[in-house]
Amino acid sequence: MSDNTGSSGPTPLVEMRDMSIAFGGVKAVNHASIDLFQGEVVGLLGHNGAGKSTLIKILSGAYKRDAGDILINGEPVKIDNPRDAKALGIETIYQTLALADNVDAAANLYLGRELRTRWGTLDDIAMESQCRQVMGRLNPNFRRFKEPVKSLSGGQRQSVAIARAIHFNARILIMDEPTAALGPQETAQVGELIKQLKAEGIGIFLISHDIHDVFDLADRVTVMKNGRVVGTAHVRDVTKDEVLGMIILGKCPPGAIPGPGAIKDIPAAAQAAVMGHA
């Protein structure tokens, strides 16, 4: 397993070793390994269909892996469903947001973890009150607490999904394209949020296909292509162009640690074309 900080460094918060999963004949994730340290942001990059969402969905319990081990703080763990993952402090903002469109923001925020009164009934008012607080931090202009989230704008829905992930004291946060539906100002806000969470010691997987976003926020990047890891690198050791080369061609630059998906050598012409394009 590649340990970028050296063998004497701390144990990673999360280690996924040799993960594989196939859907029918498609090897969506193929012997992929990735790790994440406390207070670190790891950017996961790759084209659409590279297998990024599928890889992290194994960690969040949404998919069952065909092979591979997951270690949290060096201990092997069993994650068979989303409840297992949440019990380990893993929270996820899914690319699809995974919101129940027909219920309101508070019901989504607490879905699966409802607050209850002493009679065991839903404490909707307490949930709404908490929801107003957390949404007040993320999206101060948000007022539509009584409406089903279906009627909210893309950005508002995204902030509900983010609120749900950060409200329950996550240790590990997975953000799958968290800013896809957001405008520039809101995107910057999420960037601030990520820095703040990182400072609190939370480990974050940040998935994006926007390389600039990732370079600003991530400590390291891992690039996937066709279900395999091309390589992993500290952002200070590689250039954006080199990372682009990893994404498009699968070529691992010298500053990165190559994975099983890295190609050995590529025609110079193709390489030049990529550099010119970037």
């Binding site: 947001l97 989504n108 879905l111 699966g112």
Partner: peptide, 15 residues
């Protein structure tokens, strides 16, 4: 209700 609104979301939320 949540499952009817989005079965996948309910499942991912641990239902």
């Amino acid at each position: 209700y949540a499952t009817g609104g989005n079965p996948e979301a309910a499942e991912l939320a641990g239902v």
